[in-house]
C-alpha cells in the first residue's frame, strides 16, 4: 500500500486549510470548524446532492457548487456565506416549509427538528410563498413506528440507510416531481412490508416524518450519530 498521501491546500471563507485529495468541500469545511448548512447529507450515508442547501461559491465560476459532492482542488477558493447564497438557502427552506404541512406546534419532533433548526439558523423569519396544504396520509400500520407524509421533505435518508446500512431496501421513492412520496416495498403498508423493524430510518429522519410510536417532543430526540461508528466498526472488521 502506498504511504504517500496527496495533500492539497485551499481557502475556505478566507481561511487557508489543507486537505487530502478526493475530500469534499463539506468535509474539509467541517474539519476546520466552518459550518455549511445541510439537510440530505448525513455522515455515514452516500451523498445525493439533492437538498441544494450546501451550495457554495467557487472563485472563477459563476455556477454554484453543492459542497457535499464537490471535490476540492489545489488553490481552490471557496466562499460559503454570501448574500446570494443566503438568499437561495432561505428560498429553498421556504419551498420546503410550504411544500407539505409543517406545523411545529403539533409535531413530535418540535425542538429536535433539523428543518426547524435550519429555518432559525438561516434567518427565515417569514414565508412569502403560499402554503400548498396537500392532503397526505399517515401510515401507522407498523407496530413500532409511524410515517407522517405531511412532514416528509424527501431527503431520502431513510431510503439510503435502509439500502446501504441495514441492507433491506424497504424504503424507496415513488411518483414524480411534486407528487413524489417515500414508500415501503411496492407501496405496501409499512406494517405489512418486509421491514426488519431496526428503526434506523427513524433515527436518521431529520423531521417528524418517521417517529417512534408514543413519543412526543422532548422525549423523542433522534440519534443519527450511530452511523459513522457503525461504518467504522464494519470497516475495521
Amino acid at each position: 500500500m502506498s504511504s504517500t498521501v496527496d495533500i492539497k491546500t485551499l481557502v475556505i471563507d478566507g481561511k487557508e486549510v489543507s486537505a487530502r485529495a478526493g475530500q469534499t468541500i463539506l468535509e474539509v469545511a467541517r474539519e476546520n470548524g466552518i459550518e455549511i448548512p445541510t439537510l440530505c447529507h448525513l455522515d455515514g450515508l452516500s451523498d445525493v446532492g439533492a437538498c441544494r442547501l450546501c451550495v457554495v461559491e467557487v472563485k472563477g465560476n459563476h455556477k454554484l457548487f453543492p459542497a457535499c459532492v464537490t471535490s476540492i482542488f489545489e488553490g481552490m477558493e471557496v466562499t460559503t456565506q454570501t448574500d446570494r447564497l443566503k438568499k437561495h438557502r432561505r428560498t429553498i427552506l421556504e419551498l420546503l416549509f410550504t411544500e407539505r404541512n409543517h406545523i411545529c406546534s403539533v409535531c413530535v419532533s418540535n425542538g429536535h427538528c433539523e428543518l426547524q433548526t435550519l429555518g432559525q439558523s438561516q434567518g427565515l423569519t417569514h414565508v412569502r410563498l403560499p402554503y400548498r396544504n396537500p392532503n397526505l396520509p399517515v401510515d401507522a400500520s407498523n407496530e413500532r413506528f409511524t410515517v407522517d407524509h405531511n412532514r416528509c421533505i424527501l431527503c431520502t435518508r431513510c431510503v439510503r440507510v435502509c439500502a446501504e446500512v441495514e441492507g433491506a431496501h424497504v424504503w424507496d421513492v415513488m411518483g414524480r416531481g411534486i407528487n413524489s412520496m417515500v414508500i415501503t416495498d411496492l407501496n405496501e403498508p409499512w406494517g405489512e412490508s418486509s421491514c426488519t423493524r431496526c428503526g434506523k430510518c427513524v433515527q436518521v429522519c431529520p423531521t417528524g416524518a418517521l417517529f417512534d410510536k408514543g413519543k412526543v417532543g422532548n422525549s423523542h430526540p433522534k440519534h443519527p450519530d450511530f452511523l459513522p461508528y457503525l461504518n467504522m466498526m464494519r470497516e475495521a472488521k
Binding site: I92, L95, E99, R132, G175, R176, I178
Partner: peptide
C-alpha cells in the same frame, strides 16, 4: 417542467410548482 420534474432536488420539485401557481 413541473410535471416532468423527477422530484429529487427541492428547487425544481417545489420551485416549479410554486412558479406554476
Amino acid at each position: 417542467c413541473m410535471t416532468e420534474s423527477c422530484g429529487k432536488c427541492i428547487p425544481c420539485r417545489a420551485g416549479t410548482a410554486q412558479m406554476y401557481r
